[in-house]
């Protein structure tokens, strides 16, 4: 059994007790912030200093300040936003469609175990085939337009959601089902009141994984014959030897990835507060 008392955050308002203690807790906060930023700060410093000292070729790795200047110029000119917008629309469309399709499908497959047993080997094959390996197929069939890009993201996002939903439904505590049956609940209400809520945290884990996948696949898809998007920006800048622009695109992508992941983790946590492991 897990303990009843949840761990409290280390930072707490201490009004009266003593200045000494307040100072110590402030010190602790500062320490925590330092621990979390020191590695990134170090990377930024290396990125700035090494090209300037000539330790690496500044043509291929310009100092960070130059990259940031290029980033700012792209932002001001509106180019960065138009590329980001193009990328986010594709990502969101593929990701959203994947949720709409995979969650209901997963619920269905998980609930009818003969269907699950039948389809599981197939699902495993598809899941373990890297989405990017199939990208040329999508381009071949759907052309170079938006359809193929959204489709490949849809494809990549579907598997984590589908498999997690199936396993979420299938791993519901049998005792809860037995207990609900003893109350005379029919299959529909059993599903609605027991199976679905029990599966929600597992489904959200799948959605979080799919969110991360949507960004990863997006960039690769955009590097293959696109006219806009961050992947295109990175690739295009490299061809034209606009190296600082290339790095600006990379930084943007990694910031978006971080943001999306944090957002999804927060959402996932909200839906699984009752789950304590």
């Amino acid at each position: 059994m897990s303990s009843v008392i949840e761990a409290r955050p280390a930072v707490r308002a201490v009004p009266v007790v003593s200045l000494n203690r307040a100072a110590r807790s402030a010190g602790r906060v500062a320490g925590a912030v330092l621990t979390r930023t020191v590695a990134i700060g170090l990377l930024a410093a290396v990125w700035e200093i090494f090209p300037r000292l000539g330790l690496v070729d500044a043509t291929f790795l310009p100092p960070l300040s130059e990259v940031l200047t290029a980033w700012w110029d792209l932002l001001v000119s509106g180019q960065l936003w138009s590329h980001t917008e193009a990328s986010l629309v594709r990502s969101a469309a593929g990701f959203g469609l994947a949720i709409v399709i995979a969650v209901p499908l997963g619920l269905l497959i998980g609930w009818y175990s003969p269907v699950a047993n039948l389809l599981n080997p197939l699902l495993e094959v598809f899941r373990n085939t890297a989405a990017l390996a199939i990208l040329p197929v999508f381009v071949l069939i759907l052309g170079l337009g938006e359809t193929s890009k959204i489709s490949i993201i849809l494809y990549g996002c579907t598997w984590p959601i589908l498999l997690n939903t199936v396993s979420g439904v299938r791993t519901v505590d049998p005792l809860l089902i037995k207990s609900a049956r003893s109350l005379g609940l029919g299959p529909v209400r059993l599903f609605q009141k027991v199976v679905l809520p029990a599966a929600v945290p597992t489904i959200f884990t799948g959605i979080r994984l799919a969110g991360a996948a949507s960004i990863l696949i997006l960039i690769a898809a955009e590097m293959v014959g696109a006219k806009a998007g961050l992947g295109y920006l990175i690739n295009y800048a490299q061809y034209n030897f606009a190296v600082p622009d290339m790095y600006a695109g990379i930084i943007t992508i990694s910031a978006i990835g971080l943001l999306v992941n944090q957002l999804l983790i927060a959402t996932e946590r909200r839906f699984s507060t009752w789950r304590t492991n």
Binding site: L175, L176, K178, S179, V194, P197, A198, V200, W274, R275
Partner: peptide, 9 residues
Amino acid sequence: FQQYALLPW
């Protein structure tokens, strides 16, 4: 039931 069978959510 022995294991309570309470809905955790």
